[in-house]
């Protein structure tokens, strides 16, 4: 199959980047999106040109490293999947594919499609932890957890921190990520000790990183490869109110 790519090329943060057209011809319909980029890069290398820089790691949809904005959709148009799990058969033959990096002030561009998402690490470091006695593993079921709570915490914990929510948000807000990381701990008994300080500190770190404000568009949930619900944003808002009143 043949495609025309328009890829954001920017050699360094200080440079002014632009969309550059490439021909991606003879691509197998069974190739994944990243494999297609690999093939294009091989050909660029053969011609002595600089390959397109993009983030990737597991290529199994679980690590959260990949994810560009493809034709206006973070991770591409297929719902509930990361970019590495999107296959070229999903694009019609001869179509033009526009590939851009995740855009947010808090995600400064490093090169081409690679952005620095360490702002997420700062949010995690601010409150995404629990205090437990280290040592031998605790007995199973020593702390009872209601099934519904365990399920909801697991739904929040599905977040792989890819940053698609920020990229898709018209406000470049990180509320879905922050709320998922807060809720996965706050819903469980082990996460109660720091519950109030967690809400305060994670929201503070999120603000300091320069993300925008949530205005409930719901675009984050719609592009999330793990389909994390905006219900967790309401959970964060609730915890934030409670923590502010103490």
């Amino acid at each position: 199959m043949n495609y025309t790519l328009k890829v954001w090329r920017q050699a360094r943060p200080s440079e002014k980047g632009k969309l550059v057209s490439y021909s991606a011809h003879g691509i197998s319909s069974e190739a994944s999106f990243l494999e297609m980029l690999d093939i294009v890069n091989e050909r660029l290398l053969e011609k002595g040109e600089e390959p397109i820089a993009f983030d990737h790691d597991c290529r199994e949809g679980i690590c959260g490293m990949c994810g560009s904005v493809v034709n206006g959709y973070a991770h591409g148009h297929q719902r509930g999947t990361t970019l590495c799990q999107l296959h070229m058969r999903e694009f019609s033959d001869g179509s033009t594919i526009i590939i851009e990096p995740l855009r947010a002030k808090a995600f400064p561009l490093i090169k081409d499609l690679v952005v620095d998402r360490s702002a997420f690490d700062k949010i995690i470091a601010a409150g995404g932890f629990i205090s437990i006695r280290a040592g031998s593993a605790p007995d199973g079921n020593a702390i009872p957890v209601a099934k519904e709570m365990a399920e909801r915490a697991m739904d929040a914990a599905a977040c792989i921190g890819c940053g698609a929510c920020v990229a898709a948000c018209p406000n470049a807000s990180a509320m879905l990520f922050t709320s998922a990381k807060l809720a996965q701990l706050g819903l469980l008994p082990q996460g109660q000790v720091e519950r109030d300080s967690r809400a305060r500190e994670m929201v503070r770190a999120m603000e300091d990183a320069g993300f925008g404000a949530c205005s409930n568009h719901g675009e984050c949930e719609a592009v999330c490869p793990k389909e994390i619900s905006t219900n967790f944003i309401a959970f964060l808002n609730r915890d934030f109110i409670v923590s502010s009143m103490k």
Binding site: K6, W8, L19, V69, N71, G72, Y73, H77, I98, E100, R103, A104, K105, A106, P170, N171, A172, S173, G210, F211, G212, A213, S215, N216, H217, G218, E219, E221, A222, V223
Partner: peptide, 25 residues
Amino acid sequence: VTLQSWQARPKGYAVTRYRTTSYAA
């Protein structure tokens, strides 16, 4: 919050597609 959000994305996309947000929003 509007100013904060506008500042949060200094460089926009060439293509923007929305899935769920409403005209009202």
